[in-house]
């Protein structure tokens, strides 16, 4: 009986399915199916020479690969460097523009958003030029304030920080827009009441603004972490993972394995590991940052 009711409802609401059909067909072919296939591929030795089931061999090969662990460490290093700095930058800028009138706010939002409409290829090329050891802008600045020039991308100690610095300087545009929108949603009477009680602006920022921004900050942290874990274009164009694997990341290795060495099985296994790590991170962050705050 229940099933009959459901069938009736499905027929009655058939237009709902018709309207999602084109989208769903594309989604199934180009997303769902590839995700499932990727899981299967990670258990196969796949190539033009034939396909064999190899069980967990690809995963064993990933976990016993020294370079994979270096890549994982670098990816975590990059993420731990980028996400807090970029988020802090966005919160500070959103808080700084908040009191100004709308025209000024929009001007700054647009300025910070500008790098987001520029391809990461172009951003990478510009920074390759800025980091150029003999002729780049950065070493010119270093020399003019009395420091020795640095081979930013050619030194194992500075290569990754240079990548992080560039991402933080150019990033944050859309987060600023989001945080500003959330700040505008905070009822002004909270601040007025706090002001009457004699709270300083700093205190109001920490006790009112930050706690009420929590959902937005949570969302941005999760999305920022997911994006940072997938860093590829900058690495591919600026350092190719070097020097001495100092900037090799998981996604860079997935690319190398799949499209330079055509080890599709091992590349898929590594992609699955990345998927799992991203998933765990997202859950931890939701749990940790999602807790209700007590006032």
């Amino acid at each position: 009986m229940k099933l009959q009711g459901l069938a009736k409802e499905v027929v009655k609401q058939r237009w709902g399915y018709y309207f999602i059909l084109p989208s769903f067909v594309l989604y199934a072919i180009f997303f769902l199916f590839p995700v499932l296939w990727s899981m299967v591929l990670s258990f196969l030795d796949y190539g033009w020479w034939g396909t064999t089931f190899v069980g967990l061999d690809n995963y064993r090969s990933v976990f016993s690969d020294r370079i994979f662990w270096i890549g994982l460490r670098n990816t975590v290093y990059y993420t731990l460097g980028v996400v807090p700095l970029w988020l802090a930058k966005a919160v500070i800028i959103a808080a700084l523009i908040f009191p100004f009138r709308k025209g000024i706010q929009t001007f700054f939002k647009a300025a910070f958003y500008l790098p987001h409409v520029t391809s990461s290829v172009i951003i990478s090329m510009i920074w390759l030029w800025i980091y150029n050891p003999p002729f780049g802008l950065l070493n010119y600045l270093m020399k003019s304030i009395g420091f020795e020039p640095v081979t930013w991308l050619g030194n194992t100690k500075t290569a990754m920080p240079a990548m992080i610095f560039m991402t933080v300087v150019m990033g944050g545009g859309s987060s600023i827009v989001l945080i500003s929108a959330a700040m505008n949603g905070i009822p002004p009477y909270l601040y007025e009441a706090a002001e009457i009680d004699g709270a300083t602006s700093m205190r109001m920022f920490w006790k009112i603004t930050i706690p009420l921004l929590r959902p937005t900050l949570l969302y941005l942290t999760v999305m920022g972490t997911i994006n940072s874990f997938q860093v590829f274009t900058n690495i591919y164009l600026m350092t190719q993972g070097g020097p001495q694997f100092a900037t090799t990341t998981i996604v860079y290795q997935i690319y190398e394995l799949a499209f330079s060495r055509f080890q599709f099985g091992k590349a898929s296994a590594m992609a699955m590991v990345l998927f799992a790590i991203t998933f765990v991170f997202a859950i931890i962050q939701f749990k940790w940052l999602g807790q209700e705050v007590e006032y």
Binding site: P34, F229, F232, I254, S268, F275
Partner: peptide
């Protein structure tokens, strides 16, 4: 749909290329 926005795009790269 929403959940799939969290899946790293590299997961589908190899199967899509093969297809």
């Amino acid at each position: 749909y929403v959940g799939s926005m969290m899946v790293p795009s590299q997961v589908t790269l190899v199967p899509l290329y093969i297809t």
